[in-house]
């Protein structure tokens, strides 16, 4: 059989090569087309946000709170920032510590279970968290629409995310480092805090930045836990609703008035810029890390 193959090889080989080249070209053309389609859709989204957002932008937005369906957005900016900070305050310690557990005690069956659950939670729709927050904190605990309910709901969303990024970051740390640390007589706690975390701090930070971006851009978990307020936050953790930027998009786009639409577009622009900046920052810090490593 192989003898026959060899005898007819030149012509068959050429034919096969020509066909292969055609298939290859066709395949790559399809890939390029797919890419062009996505790129145009995404560029169009950015165009919409920038085009309408920039024309709605003015200094007033950053200096005054919303009044009715006009005015500024300072209350919403403040609220978005505070909600996110509060959520991070809760979620980062939980996520990072949980991540350490899953990574460093991973032979444990419990660690497997937690990792599995965290993976699932990262994918659970945010509106389910919103319902959870509404049912438990807003109504059962009687906190009403409030900062606390919003922060905890957001934290529930991003803690599993932090857990997984921390775990992956720790796994990236070479095993030799752990061995060296134990060889020096350090306990597990000391090894984790003094050696491993320091080594992968920048990756964990990247995870925090991305989690910030996620919680800044969320709407669904907040509608039923935080609601909306026309004023600045007054320092109460419970019983007082808080303003936030994505609500302006969700709700004001439904008002008939141009001033409301302008606010919605301005809010969309701010959120988009903020999220893009955070993601870019996260990416840059990761890049710097890899450059340092390879240098």
């Amino acid at each position: 059989m192989s003898a026959i193959d060899i005898r007819y090889a030149p012509a068959a080989f050429e034919r096969r090569q020509r066909r292969n080249a055609r298939v290859s070209a066709l395949g790559w053309a399809a890939c390029a087309l797919a890419f062009a389609l996505l790129a145009s859709a995404l560029l169009d989204i950015l165009f919409l946000v920038f085009h309408r957002g920039l024309s709605a932008l003015n200094l007033q937005l950053f200096l005054t709170p919303t009044s009715g369906i006009g005015g500024g957005l300072l209350n919403a900016i403040e609220g978005s920032v505070l909600l996110t900070l509060g959520a991070l305050l809760l979620a980062v310690p939980i996520g990072v510590l949980g991540g350490i557990y899953v990574s460093e005690y991973s032979r444990d069956w419990l660690a497997h279970g937690v990792r599995f659950v965290a993976d699932v939670l990262v994918g659970v729709p945010s509106i389910v968290f919103g319902l959870f927050g509404y049912l438990t904190m807003v109504t059962a605990l009687d906190w009403h629409f409030s900062m606390a309910a919003g922060c905890i709901t957001l934290a529930l969303m991003i803690a599993p995310y932090m857990l997984r990024t921390t775990e992956l970051a720790l796994r990236g740390v070479p095993h030799e480092l752990r061995e060296a640390s134990y060889a020096l007589g350090a306990g597990q706690a000391a090894t984790v805090t003094h050696v491993l975390l320091r080594e992968c701090a920048s990756r964990v930070l990247t995870g925090i930045l991305l989690a910030t971006a996620i919680s800044m851009g969320e709407t669904a978990p907040l509608i039923y836990t935080v609601n909306w307020s026309n004023y600045y936050w007054n320092g109460h953790l419970t019983h007082e609703p808080v303003a936030y930027l994505t609500y302006v998009i969700w709700s004001f786009i439904n008002e008939p008035f141009a001033s409301a639409h302008a606010l919605a577009y301005a809010a969309a622009l701010m959120i988009t810029l903020f999220v893009l900046a955070l993601t870019l920052l996260a990416r840059l810090s990761l890049n710097r890390l890899t450059v340092r490593r390879s240098a």
């Binding site: 009044s67 009715g68 369906i69 006009g70 005015g71 026309n230």
Partner: peptide, 9 residues
């Protein structure tokens, strides 16, 4: 909402 929030401001 529009009128109540305007009034309240």
């Amino acid at each position: 909402y529009p009128v109540l929030s305007k009034w309240s401001a």
